[in-house]
Simulated assay, not measured.
Amino acid sequence: MTDLAVKTRPQRAPREGGPSSGRRWLLPVMLTLISLIWLFPLLLALVNSFRDYAYTAKNGYISWGGFTLDNYTNAWAAGDFGLHFMNSVIITVPAVILTLFLSCCVAFVVARFSFKFNLALLGFFLAANLLPPQALLIPVYRMFRAIEVPLWVSDSGTLLNSFVGLILVNMAFQIGFCAFVLSNYMKALPRELYESAVIDGASVTRQFFQITLPLCRPAIAALAVLQVTWIYNEFFWATVLLQQGDKFPVTSSINNLRGQFFTDNNLVAAGSVIIAVPTLVIFFVLQRHFVAGLTLGATKG
């Protein structure tokens, strides 16, 4: 009788909560606060880029009013953004395309072929990312000054003051990282695909262009977004290797917005927003591929 009563006794619903239930709201609140703190300077710069300098000088930057669009027109004219945007395109587009293509070649060799110096080759390409650019400033500058090129490549007759030199140095510092990421990505591809391709008579070149590159499209798109952002925003090597102001990339336009005796911070903020727009557009256009490239394989065992 007792056993029957125990079996027929209605089961209680599990209690919600517990010792940790009161702290469930803590993590979302902390993440929200951290996000707001991180976004506050960016939002403040964005708002003040639409405000008049005289108004903010009188009422402070944390105030409301004095909105105008003159900062953007003045920044575009004073910074000569049209010329410098074109310079950034000339530098960024070839550097990104060549970096990704050469990285795919290196990664394919490392991932698909086994030989004695397999990992050493990858480490050699990755070594450029282990040294700070400042440590290589003098050797790279002297090397580029000693390498002679035709005058149609550079007015100086060397790699200094040329777009080619800046493209090469950006490629040298980015190929290692991209090859490392792509090699790990390619190693996860099924070997059965390549075995079937070999049986069908596909050459190594055909395997690379018709099998590997299409399957690596998400990873390549994710790296393309990162590379465009890094090379487009690069300022150090442009300052060192370029000697003429009409060849500087768009990031140098900010210097043209600074006065000798005072700086209109609202004008600088407007110029910064103008510079940031292309990278934001590229990110939102490739956002789906970027997220897919970062999360692919995250759920595999």
Rank of each mutant, 00 (worst) to 15 (best):
R12K: 15
G201D: 11
Y72H: 11
N233I: 09
T158S: 13
F236N: 07
T2N: 12
A127G: 04
Y53H: 14
K247T: 01
E195I: 13
P190W: 10
M143Q: 04
N161S: 09
I220N: 00
G79A: 13
L31Y: 09
W64T: 06
I62R: 10
L294N: 08
L43D: 00
V89T: 07
F85N: 06
I167C: 01
V109F: 10
N233F: 07
F284G: 11
N266H: 01
T229A: 10
N74Q: 15
N71F: 04
D155G: 13
F284V: 15
P214Q: 07
A188D: 15
A179K: 02
F50N: 03
V240N: 05
F284H: 12
G176S: 00
V140S: 03
N118M: 13
S21M: 13
I275H: 09
Y55M: 13
A75L: 11
I199P: 03
M186A: 11
N87F: 00
L182H: 05
N118W: 01
A222S: 04
F173E: 01
T68C: 11
S63M: 12
L69N: 13
V89G: 03
P41R: 12
N255G: 15
K187P: 02
I147C: 08
P41A: 09
G157N: 03
I275M: 09
L102T: 11
N71P: 12
L121R: 08
L242C: 11
L33N: 07
T299K: 14
L98M: 08
H289G: 02
V153I: 15
T263G: 11
T212L: 06
R258A: 12
V109I: 14
W25T: 06
F113I: 06
Q260Y: 09
V225R: 00
S196Y: 06
N233R: 09
L130P: 01
P249C: 14
F261L: 11
Y194S: 09
T73G: 15
D264M: 07
L294G: 04
L296T: 07
R9P: 01
G165V: 03
I274W: 07
L226S: 00
N87R: 08
F85I: 09
I147P: 00
T99N: 08
F124E: 05
G259Y: 08
L27D: 02
L257I: 10
S63H: 09
E16I: 03
M1R: 13
K7E: 05
L46I: 14
